Computed example of a mutant assay.
Amino acid sequence: MTGADIDGVDPFHRFVLLSVIDLRARDDVPVHSFDVTGVCEDLLDEFDDLDGMVPGGVTRQRVINALSELESADLLGEKRKESPTGKGRPAYALDIAEDEVLDHLEDDDRFGDAVERIRDRRE
């Protein structure tokens, strides 16, 4: 993975990718769109710098679209995970080096504080 891979997606997609990494730090992988949506909302509540990236707010449909596009860009891998009711639902796992993503996003002032919090959680 290179910084160019991440630079190829817009800030909202980077924000969703950061949320996937945050879930991974909690050992909650592979992730579902509803979990990622919740983390996105939590990050927006906690970090004011992220608000400008999400005009119109976070919706589950926007997150679903972003996850699919990140998978198409080879930044995430799609997995199948069965729900307790037996339905197969798409789930996603990071297909790239997490530390490289965090290093790259840390250089962006909008993500710096969130990256620091995620790194602290991993320790």
Rank of each mutant, 00 (worst) to 15 (best):
M1K: 03
T2H: 09
G3C: 12
G3L: 05
A4S: 11
A4C: 07
D5T: 01
I6P: 04
I6R: 01
G8A: 15
D10R: 05
D10V: 03
P11L: 08
F12R: 03
R14A: 02
R14V: 03
R14L: 06
F15P: 01
V16E: 10
L17W: 07
L17C: 05
S19T: 03
S19Y: 04
R24A: 15
R26N: 12
R26Y: 02
D28C: 10
P30N: 10
V31G: 05
V36A: 11
V36N: 14
T37Q: 11
G38Y: 10
V39Q: 14
C40R: 11
E41D: 11
D42K: 13
D42Q: 08
E46D: 10
D49F: 00
L50A: 04
L50K: 02
D51K: 14
V54H: 03
V54W: 03
P55D: 04
G57F: 04
G57K: 03
G57E: 01
V58T: 12
V58A: 11
Q61M: 15
R62W: 04
I64C: 05
N65Q: 14
A66I: 12
S68H: 06
L70S: 11
S72M: 10
A73Q: 12
D74S: 10
L75Y: 05
L76S: 05
E78A: 08
E78W: 03
E78H: 07
K81Q: 07
E82I: 04
E82C: 10
P84G: 03
P84H: 09
K87W: 10
K87C: 07
R89K: 05
P90R: 14
P90T: 09
A91Q: 06
Y92F: 15
A93P: 07
D95I: 01
D95W: 03
I96F: 11
I96A: 13
D99F: 03
D99V: 05
V101W: 01
V101D: 02
V101K: 04
D103V: 00
D103H: 00
D103E: 14
H104S: 10
L105V: 09
L105S: 00
D107N: 13
D108F: 08
D108H: 13
R110C: 06
F111A: 00
D113Y: 03
A114S: 13
V115L: 04
E116H: 07
E116D: 15
I118W: 00
R119T: 04
D120E: 13
D120G: 05
R121Q: 08
R121H: 13
R122I: 11
